[in-house]
Amino acid sequence: MPAVASAHIVPGTGPAPLAWGADWWVLASLVLSLLLYAAGVAKLWPRLGQGRRAVLGRAAYFAAGWLAMAAALASPLDPAGGMLFAAHMVQHELLMIVAAPLLVLGRPFGPWLWGLPASWRRAVGHGVHWRPWAVAWQAITRPLAAWLIHFAALWVWHAPPLFQLALADDTVHAWQHASFLFPALLFWWAVLGARGPAPGPAMLYLFTTMMHTGALGALFALSNTVWYPAYGDGPLAFGLMPLEDQQLGGLIMWIPGGLAYVIAGLALCLRWLAPVRNTWTGSSRPNPGKP
């Protein structure tokens, strides 16, 4: 009841102000990630030679993913997500199917590491190669493990008690966003990373993820019951009934969300089918199947 009362909007008063901004630690994390990446690329640039074009392409992917992440976390979309389920779904989709794959394609670990001072870089390098950490990282980035973590995070957080708790508590809400973003990064790393699975398994992971995310969206879109009454009358300020808001959010997860996995699958197919060009002789040969 307190959550419903706090979300209640008196008809005719209009929506609460929707402004840019976020908690200081969110903004600090966004700025630090961008500055470290830029510093790392600047340090590597003189050493790259013919590899500069590839690094520029990765930097473009990272920049696009960073902008999507900033739009999800620090734009008016964030406060709107506390009033409107459909806006909340747009926010989650930006994190999981836009920002996450673009950040993975940006390969940020190398530039981030080079962006650190030399002494810190050596310490981080030793920590990364510490056996317990290396074993844990290999375990969670295996395609099946990453798929299961992503699946569990999505379905568990959409359970009504947890989802409504996130609406009422900013700390829980932050954990919810982290639980969507980082498992999505693991999933896309497992599929798009340099050591991703063979074409068949990768397509299977994409297809099954499209199916279970689409099923969750369909449950929202086709339901005649409001799952999250904690939104109260918030949707009315945007001209939507609570059930219409929920159905619109479900359609966003179901249709555009599913289409993103189809596009990713088609892009992977094109990459696998394209011949590999020998940069020394200029000849081409069939792609052996690794991304």
Rank of each mutant, 00 (worst) to 15 (best):
F238S: 02
M69Q: 14
G282Q: 08
L154N: 08
V31L: 15
A198K: 12
Q176P: 01
G21V: 11
Y205C: 00
G214W: 03
C269E: 12
A99D: 05
M210S: 10
T281Q: 06
L73V: 06
Y205M: 07
A70H: 03
D245P: 00
P2N: 11
A134N: 00
P199A: 15
Q164A: 09
W155Y: 14
L95A: 04
F163K: 08
W20I: 14
W175L: 15
P288L: 09
P108K: 05
A59P: 01
A145H: 11
V276T: 15
A174Y: 06
I263S: 08
P235H: 03
V26Q: 10
L186P: 01
P15L: 14
V128W: 13
W133H: 06
G282F: 07
L30P: 02
A74H: 09
G40S: 10
T208Q: 11
I9H: 14
E244Y: 05
I97T: 12
Q50T: 15
V55W: 13
Q138Y: 01
D23K: 10
G257S: 04
A42Q: 13
L219F: 14
G21D: 07
N287P: 05
W45K: 06
L185R: 00
G239N: 07
V41F: 06
A38C: 12
L113N: 03
L113V: 04
G214P: 01
L30C: 08
L116K: 07
F85W: 10
T209V: 08
W137D: 08
A87S: 12
V135R: 12
G250Q: 05
V172P: 02
A152E: 11
H212R: 03
A218N: 10
G282S: 07
L270R: 15
W155A: 05
A221C: 12
A28D: 05
